[in-house]
């Protein structure tokens, strides 16, 4: 890939909790996409050997001493990116659902200097093939509408978690990132902080092993928590980040 020049130093941030079966493959796929990317796996106190496997595949592993949840884990990665002066960060799930070969598309708007945050959306293109279960599809739609309304820009997918950030985005999320079920609220925070958002259609895979951490009871908590967080976030003031950059 030729992108890495204008994107500067690139880091991939991967949260993982008990993903020993797939984490090695996830790391390898990113490496195959671009060998110069530094890959950081944040092991959220897994009970299996996720950390060791990630390390043996050449990833930098950040080991959380106890489980802090997906948002807290991802934020650790952004803090790492900030401290180590990376210019660009991408975030992928540790379960292999985010396809590393889609990274090129995700990075393109950053490379052109058009965006600070690029979300890999499953629904930009209505003909997309990803079909989550009905209840989830409704949830995804409702949150997309709500964030669009409160953030003043049409957002098609707020739950994907597949994203790319420039330096300003890294700074924002290192400082401010929700600790559990973070994606939806983080999107709104980014919009309200003045980040330029781009969305690109990406393919997303079905889960290969294990099961989603989001069960029925948790999904009720998910909806309640995220809705409350969105409403409150829209009442808060966020410092507008400078949008004339580089």
């Amino acid at each position: 890939m030729t992108a890495s020049k204008s994107l500067g130093r690139l880091v991939a941030v991967i949260p993982a909790f008990d993903e020993s079966e797939v984490i090695g493959k996830v790391v390898d796929e990113i490496r195959a996409f671009d060998a110069s990317v530094d890959i950081v796996v944040i092991d959220d106190a897994s009970t299996d050997d996720t950390a060791e496997i990630a390390e043996s595949h050449g990833a930098i592993v950040l080991r959380l001493p106890h489980n802090v949840g997906i948002g807290g884990a991802v934020q650790t990665g952004f803090k790492f990116a900030l401290a180590e002066n990376y210019d660009t960060a991408v975030r992928l799930d540790g379960d292999g659902q985010h396809d590393a070969s889609e990274l090129e598309k995700l990075l393109a708007p950053l490379e052109r200097g058009e965006a600070d945050l690029v979300i890999g959306s499953r629904f930009v293109d209505p003909g997309g093939t990803y079909r989550p279960p009905l209840a989830r599809r409704i949830g995804i739609r409702v949150f997309a509408r709500l964030v669009s309304l409160l953030g003043g820009q049409r957002v098609t997918d707020t739950t994907s978690g597949f994203l790319a950030l420039d330096r300003i985005g890294i700074e924002l999320f290192a400082a401010e990132y929700p600790h559990d079920y973070p994606e939806v609220e983080a999107t709104l925070v980014a919009l309200r902080s003045g980040l330029r958002l781009a969305q690109v259609q990406v393919r997303m895979r079905e889960r290969e092993t294990g099961s989603s951490s989001i069960t029925f009871v948790r999904s009720l908590y998910y909806v309640a928590k995220v809705t409350l967080a969105l409403l409150v976030a829209s009442l808060r003031r966020y410092p507008r980040l400078e949008t004339a950059r580089r």
Binding site: I42, I60, V61, L62, R63, L64, P65, H66, V68, G69, G72, Q75, T76, K79, F80, A83, H179
Partner: peptide, 15 residues
Amino acid sequence: DENVELAQRIALLEE
């Protein structure tokens, strides 16, 4: 919040 922050710092420092 403080607890998460501590955990994050430990992870970063250890690395």
